[in-house]
């Protein structure tokens, strides 16, 4: 049902100072599949997903145990270049966070910082990315307006376009719809399903219906532990663990 492992998470624990927020997590993230991470808030979903592109490096006094492999390479080995990893593993955040720049500049930014100078190429890539993110038709006449003038849903799709522009292979979504209205949410979900054929996707959500709608695999995290991981269908119909069942039926969360 899947075509190989893209990211392998192996016995990962993570600490903020002395606070252990993830304990001994092992799971695989498969190529061209959508993997959903669900669980009540505070259980460590964001921490977990931010480990996959080394965003937690920014936090001083944090500690990682275990290993994370991207295509069989340990991304936390000292030799690995953080910048290269972040190019391969893009991220869309919980709150839309466009730069205070024009729509065009937002999308072009990732190319510029990666030393791509060819103007024609950049322009081509900007348009292509906006198209892929289903935003092109709404912004094509105002590419040079401030990105902050867009609606929340449009801003989030702009962030997706910005992420696509650097041509990543994996895209991490951390509750991408948490601050959006239902219509925008639906658009983003459709987009995720479309992107699946070209990218490997990990999405954190605490909306279980969303996980059921978009994902192929689901991981249920609770208090920093991976309680259950498997095919979304199975998890939602015949969960093996009692905790998972309780969470899915709304007994807590």
């Amino acid at each position: 049902m899947h075509n190989g492992t893209r990211i392998k998470i192996s016995n990962v624990s993570f600490y903020y100072g002395n606070l252990k927020v993830l304990s001994n997590i092992s799971m695989d993230i498969y190529k061209n599949q959508v993997t959903a991470i669900i669980g009540p808030s505070g259980c460590g979903k964001s921490t977990f997903i931010r480990l996959l592109n080394r965003m937690n490096d920014l936090i001083t006094k944090s500690k990682l145990e275990g290993s994370i492999y991207l295509d069989n390479k340990d991304i936390y080995k000292a030799k690995e270049d953080v910048v290269a990893i972040r190019r391969l593993v893009g991220m869309v955040f919980q709150k839309p966070n466009p730069f205070p720049k024009s729509i065009y500049e937002n999308v072009a930014y990732g190319l510029e910082v990666n030393n791509i100078k060819d103007k024609a190429f950049i322009e081509h890539r900007v348009i292509e990315s906006l198209r892929k993110a289903a935003l092109w038709n709404e912004v094509k006449d105002r590419l040079h307006d401030s990105a902050l003038k867009l609606s929340g849903g449009q801003q989030q799709r702009l962030c997706i376009a910005r992420c696509l522009a650097v041509d990543p292979e994996v895209i991490l979504f951390d509750e991408p719809c948490a601050s959006l209205d239902p219509v925008s949410t639906k658009k983003i979900e459709e987009l995720i399903l479309e992107l699946k054929s070209d990218y490997t996707i990990v999405i954190v959500t605490h909306n279980m219906q969303q996980a059921a709608r978009v994902s192929d695999f689901t991981a249920f995290l609770y208090l920093g532990e991976l309680v259950e991981f498997g095919h979304t269908e199975k998890i939602f119909t015949v969960p093996k663990n009692k905790k998972t069942e309780e969470y899915l039926t709304g007994k807590f969360g």
Partner: peptide, 27 residues
């Protein structure tokens, strides 16, 4: 300057110096 746009910049493969130069200072 919000942390969120710094993170956005870093997540696109910008170095921290590029982030400061192109995002933080202009903002």
């Amino acid at each position: 300057v919000p942390r969120s746009i710094r993170e956005a910049s870093l997540s696109l493969g910008a170095s921290s110096w590029q982030t400061i130069k192109k995002i933080v200072i202009p903002t």
